[in-house]
Design a binder for these strands. Structure first.
Ligand code: ZN
Ligand code: ZN
Ligand code: ZN
Ligand code: ZN
Lengths: 159, 159
DNA sequence: TGTGCATTGATATGTTATAACAAGGATGCT
DNA sequence: AGCATCCTTGTTATAACATATCAATGCACA
């Protein structure tokens, strides 16, 4: 059941169902998935990889959807706030969420070989860091959990 | 015993002992803690706060230790690789390590009010993310664990 | 139909980080 | 001491990531 991102799968179906879930989310919450935003999400989802804002912008501008940085950043802002995409802090890059809507505290496995990203779950309060926070009287609002390394495919090729 | 960074403490002594440990580390491992690097570490340690590379550069250049970005980035590179400082990915900023030498996988509590940072321990392999990695055949090389929120002091003032 | 608000277009700028190459200085060997 | 080597620093330039600002457009709802 885990880390579909690193496994062979019917990605066309994967994308279709994710986009459907995203649209459902937006409809349910009164958010407007405009053409630029929709296309940005599709681009982010087209591979399970992290994409820089300017990479996204290049795709968008090639399709006539805007050529200036704010176009990309605004779309990314919307998607991240809506929970349809995530920012990978360790890469300053962005990835489409594979299960939008489900309210989740994501954790990521990031391959340094191919930049593929798999999304897992984390539970900030139950972790060791959560214990430290409680002991220190620190109130956690957001957590970043990212692991860099090599995915199965890149372990074989790169060793 | 935990999160000295958020508590009142004799910080002068705190710094002295940390710098001593850092020097011992460098001596033991044949690393050269040159004047720029030493001063950079002192600056990072002077408060338990994350400092941007350009903030550090401003301090250094005010003291005549170099005025161009590479000066700061090279010092930071050295300190991070030597385990004497850590990068806070969520802030693109850097913080001095409070227990240099001890080989550790750090996790951070980051106050969004005052940018204070407390260092805790994490155990990548034993976490839920570690389970996900094993299940996916992913080999973790480095982990980023950061929690943003409010420290005790900022909870009182800011609410 | 008009008012307000979210979205987009466009220009400019701010912030973070690295490439590339020349010069200086420590270390170790003969 | 002379020399080679390697690490470190100086300097210029540029790349990569991100936001401020203001004008224009379009949709939503009274
Ligand atoms: Zn897929
Ligand atoms: Zn997600
Ligand atoms: Zn201290
Ligand atoms: Zn604080």
């Amino acid at each position: 059941m885990s880390a579909i991102e690193f496994r062979d799968h019917d990605h066309a179906a994967c994308m279709r169902s994710t986009m459907q879930a995203a649209e459902a989310q937006c409809a349910a919450r009164g958010l407007r998935l405009t053409p630029v935003r929709r296309r940005a999400l599709e681009i982010l989802l087209s591979e399970h990889r992290a994409l820089g804002a300017y990479d996204l912008l290049a795709h968008l501008s090639a399709e006539g959807l805007g050529a200036q940085p704010p176009v990309a950043y605004r779309a990314l802002d919307f998607l991240v706030k809506a929970g349809l995409a995530h920012k990978i802090e360790a890469l300053n890059a962005y990835v489409g969420c594979v299960h939008p809507g489900e309210d989740h505290a994501p954790a990521f496995l990031i391959c340094r070989g191919c930049r593929s990203v798999a999304e897992a779950e984390t539970s900030p309060t139950k972790s060791r860091l959560g214990d430290a926070a409680r002991a220190a009287g620190f109130r956690i609002e957001r957590s970043v959990v990212e692991a860099e390394g090599l995915c199965p495919a890149c372990q074989e090729t790169g060793a």
